[in-house]
C-alpha cells in the first residue's frame, strides 16, 4: 500500500531532476533533489512504497536516466499515467522502475489516496475510494526484460 503524489500533464525530466544536479549519478544524491522544481514538499514527505500518479506524457524531455533513477531512489514504488514519453518509458524498464499506463486510474486517483498495485495482473486497487482499475499488461518482449531484472541482466544473459 502506498500514498499517492499527484501531478498534471507533461511532467518533464527537467523538473523530475534539474540539470544542475546532473554532475553526479549517485542515486541517493539525485533522490535528494527529485521533483524539487515542481513540488518542494515531495522529498520531505515521500516514503518507501509511495506512488506517483500523473497526467499524460510523463517524463518528456531529456534522455537522462537520472530521472527514473531519482524517482526510484526516493522510495517511489510505481508511476501511473495515461501515457509516458518514450525515452522515459524505455529507461524505466531498463532501470527497474515499474510504470503502468492507465487512463482511468490517472483520472480517478487523487493525491493522498492509498493505492495497491499488482504488476503481474495490472490490477490497481484504490483502498481509499474502494475502486479497482486495470492497466494494459506488458507486451511479451518487455516482460522478458522485466523478468531478467532489467536490461543489464538481459544483456548479461545473452552476451
Amino acid at each position: 500500500m502506498g500514498t499517492v503524489f499527484k501531478y498534471g500533464d507533461n511532467v518533464d525530466t527537467d523538473v523530475i531532476i534539474p540539470a544542475r544536479h546532473l554532475s553526479t549519478s549517485d542515486p541517493k544524491e539525485l533522490a535528494a533533489h527529485c521533483m524539487e522544481d515542481i513540488d518542494k514538499e515531495f522529498v520531505k514527505k515521500v516514503k518507501e512504497g509511495d506512488i506517483i500518479v500523473a497526467g499524460s506524457n510523463f517524463g518528456c524531455g531529456s534522455s537522462r536516466e537520472h530521472a527514473p533513477i531519482a524517482i526510484k531512489a526516493s522510495g517511489i514504488r510505481c508511476v501511473i499515467a495515461p501515457t509516458f514519453a518514450r525515452i522515459f518509458y524505455r529507461n524505466s524498464f531498463n532501470t527497474g522502475l515499474p510504470i503502468l499506463e492507465c487512463e482511468e486510474a490517472a483520472a480517478k486517483i487523487d493525491a493522498g489516496d492509498e493505492v495497491v498495485v499488482d504488476f503481474t495482473t495490472g490490477k490497481i486497487t484504490n483502498a481509499t475510494k474502494n475502486e479497482v482499475y486495470w492497466s494494459e499488461p506488458f507486451p511479451p518482449f518487455i516482460r522478458k526484460i522485466i523478468e531478467s531484472g532489467g536490461l543489464v541482466n538481459y544483456v548479461k544473459e545473452n552476451l
Binding site: I87, N91, N94, Y154, V155, L159
Partner: peptide, 14 residues
C-alpha cells in the same frame, strides 16, 4: 533516436 544510458551500454556491448 534518443535512448537512456542503459540502452547506450547495451548498444556499446552488443
Amino acid at each position: 533516436t534518443g535512448v537512456g544510458s542503459t540502452d547506450m551500454a547495451a548498444g556499446m556491448a552488443t
